[in-house]
Lab assay of single mutants.
Amino acid sequence: MEVRTIKVFTTVDNINLHTQVVDMSMTYGQQFGPTYLDGADVTKIKPHNSHEGKTFYVLPNDDTLRVEAFEYYHTTDPSFLGRYMSALNHTKKWKYPQVNGLTSIKWADNNCYLATALLTLQQIELKFNPPALQDAYYRARAGEAANFCALILAYCNKTVGELGDVRETMSYLFQHANLDSCKRVLNVVCKTCGQQQTTLKGVEAVMYMGTLSYEQFKKGVQIPCTCGKQATKYLVQQESPFVMMSAPPAQYELKHGTFTCASEYTGNYQCGHYKHITSKETLYCIDGALLTKSSEYKGPITDVFYKENSYTTTIK
């Protein structure tokens, strides 16, 4: 009895394709271990004539594949690729409408935090270190965002349907971005203890939790000093293409032309909904596939993004 075979390709990165001759009487799992086709788990399936010449994702289970996976995804987590594939199996079914010149995501599976993050990423200057993220990001900007969303979920250790947080998501993504040249110098002034300067680099240099107003941050924000008295913390120097200011959701007025974009969060910790506000020729609110415009805006804002380049204080 002759062994019926077909020729397929296996890959971990969709760049390096490895030619395989597979036995049609055995499952993919018996031949390769966990195997995925377009995100779908085909591990328990036997090869079919229609699979001839198709590319299958496999887990990096030998040295060659491990090197290829690390170079593309910059992670050695053995569960990463499987999590990416199972997320992709959902995100490829989502709709990605162009809204006001940006790629958004039609609401499904509690994905409003991903839509808000995706919209924000198209408006701030950011370059990702893992080629996987950078490639998928370019495709997302062009309207094909399924891979990018699935990668975000995998890097953030999230599953489809789980509630997510924009600030946490951005923080994970910033860790995989090139923020080497970003720098922030802060000064804390206390009447009792004097003053202390701190220099922050990388992710810490672009994120701040405690106030939404970048102007206020430049002037000074009140913080408790270690001595128990009130101290003032203010920005001395900022070198970065953008800054992200966050605070627990509270009524906040966004003035046209003073910011790049913002995240609105309605609801409580267990259950809520994100919308995205962007400042173009007027203010726009993007909620999944829905767009509304207004000249002014007041609502429960939790993150505001500002364009920056270089700032030095005039406070002496």
Rank of each mutant, 00 (worst) to 15 (best):
S279F: 00
T91E: 00
F148H: 00
G267V: 15
N14E: 07
Q196W: 08
P248M: 07
I277F: 04
P60A: 10
F128Y: 07
E204V: 04
A40L: 12
E308S: 11
K201A: 15
M26L: 14
S181T: 12
K307L: 12
L290H: 14
A117I: 15
G228I: 05
Y138I: 08
Q30D: 10
D13I: 01
N61Y: 15
V243L: 07
C271V: 15
V304K: 04
R139H: 15
R139S: 09
P300G: 09
S310K: 14
W107I: 12
T198I: 10
L17N: 09
M24P: 11
T11S: 06
T282F: 12
K298I: 15
K275R: 15
S279H: 06
V221A: 09
R184S: 11
K316N: 15
C261W: 02
H18V: 08
G161S: 07
D180K: 09
K233A: 13
N100K: 12
I15Q: 07
G143E: 02
D38C: 10
V185I: 10
L59Y: 10
F80H: 05
G161M: 00
Y274V: 04
H176I: 03
Q175D: 08
Q230S: 15
E168P: 03
S181N: 11
T282E: 09
F259R: 06
Y36E: 01
H90P: 01
K293H: 05
N110A: 04
T282Q: 13
S295W: 10
K233R: 11
L119M: 06
F242D: 04
N110R: 09
V42N: 06
L290T: 13
D165C: 13
K233L: 12
K201D: 06
M245K: 03
L173E: 00
Q216P: 02
M244N: 05
Y306T: 05
D41L: 05
E52S: 13
L163S: 10
L173Q: 00
V236Q: 13
E253N: 15
A108H: 06
D180P: 04
G82L: 11
F70T: 14
V22Y: 00
K280V: 05
G143M: 00
K219F: 09
G161I: 00
T76Y: 11
T266H: 08
Q122F: 01
Y155S: 00
L133P: 00
K106N: 12
A154H: 02
I223L: 10
A247P: 00
L126Q: 08
M26H: 11
T226M: 10
T11F: 03
L65K: 09
Q31R: 12
C271L: 07
T282C: 11
S240F: 01
T312G: 11
M207H: 09
F80N: 03
D109R: 04
R4G: 14
K229F: 09
Q98G: 06
G53C: 09
D63Y: 09
S240Y: 03
E239K: 10
A117G: 03
C112R: 07
G299V: 04
K298W: 11
L133R: 00
T91P: 02
V166F: 14
K127A: 07
A108C: 15
C156F: 02
L212H: 08
K127I: 07
M85I: 08
V185G: 04
S279G: 02
V99P: 07
A108V: 11
G288M: 01
K7Y: 11
K219H: 11
L153C: 09
T199S: 11
S294N: 13
K233F: 05
H18T: 14
V203F: 12
A108L: 09
L235Y: 05
N110C: 03
C112E: 15
Q196I: 07
Y73C: 00
E168I: 08
N157W: 00
P47K: 01
K255C: 07
T260K: 03
A205M: 03
K219M: 15
H74I: 00
A145C: 12
Y96I: 04
C261T: 03
C285T: 08
R83A: 08
S50P: 07
Y234S: 09
V160S: 02
T55R: 11
C225A: 05
L17A: 04
G257S: 04
Y265D: 04
C190L: 00
E125N: 08
Q238V: 01
K92A: 12
M244A: 00
A177D: 00
E281D: 09
F70P: 06
V304P: 05
V42A: 08
G39I: 04
T198V: 07
D63W: 06
C225R: 03
Y214C: 08
N100V: 08
Y284G: 06
S181Q: 11
V189Q: 10
G267H: 12
L37Q: 11
E125M: 06
K229S: 09
K298P: 04
A262Y: 03
Q230P: 10
Y57Q: 08
E281I: 00
P60E: 05
P47E: 02
V236S: 07
T35R: 01
G210L: 07
E2A: 10
A140P: 01
V304I: 14
E215M: 06
D41H: 02
A117W: 00
E144L: 07
T64K: 15
Q222T: 14
T169Q: 04
P47F: 04
V304E: 05
A262I: 00
W94I: 00
N89C: 12
T10R: 11
Q230Y: 15
D23Q: 10
T282N: 09
V206Q: 05
T55K: 08
P241F: 02
A140Q: 00
S50Q: 14
Q195K: 10
Q20A: 10
Y297A: 07
N268P: 09
H51I: 02
A150E: 00
V3D: 15
A40G: 11
E52K: 10
P249I: 03
D62W: 04
Y306S: 05
G257M: 05
C190V: 02
K158G: 06
V12T: 09
L65F: 12
A69C: 09
Q237F: 11
R139A: 11
E308K: 08
Y84F: 08
S79G: 14
L283Y: 04
E308F: 12
L151E: 03
G161C: 03
E296D: 15
I286P: 05
Y138V: 14
L291V: 14
A69K: 04
F70G: 08
M207N: 06
T226E: 13
L153M: 10
L153R: 04
N187D: 13
K298E: 10
Y306Q: 06
M209Y: 10
T260L: 05
Y172A: 14
A115S: 14
D23E: 10
V243I: 07
P300I: 14
S79F: 04
F128S: 00
T55W: 06
H273F: 03
L179S: 00
I152V: 12
G161P: 03
D77A: 06
C149V: 15
S246N: 04
S50I: 11
I277W: 15
S263D: 10
T278G: 09
G53I: 02
F217Y: 08
E239I: 13
L291K: 06
F128V: 00
T159Q: 13
Y274L: 07
G53V: 01
Y72D: 09
D303G: 03
Q195S: 13
I301E: 04
G194L: 10
M209K: 09
I223N: 06
V99C: 09
G228L: 06
R184W: 09
S295G: 10
V58M: 11
T103M: 02
A108R: 15
S171T: 11
I152P: 00
V243A: 03
D303W: 01
Y84V: 02
Q270I: 11
K219A: 14
G164R: 06
N100L: 07
G257L: 05
F242Y: 04
T302N: 05
C261H: 05
T314S: 13
T27S: 14
T75V: 15
E144C: 12
Y84P: 02
K54G: 07
T266Y: 15
P47I: 00
E68G: 02
G164C: 05
N49S: 12
T76L: 09
T313E: 10
D287Y: 01
A154C: 06
S171K: 06
I15F: 13
A250E: 12
K255A: 07
T27A: 11
I223E: 09
Q123P: 00
D135S: 08
T226F: 09
Y84S: 01
Q216T: 15
T116W: 03
H18L: 08
A132R: 06
Q31A: 15
G220K: 03
L173D: 03
D165K: 12
K127S: 12
P78E: 15
M207R: 08
T266S: 11
G161V: 06
P131A: 05
L119Q: 03
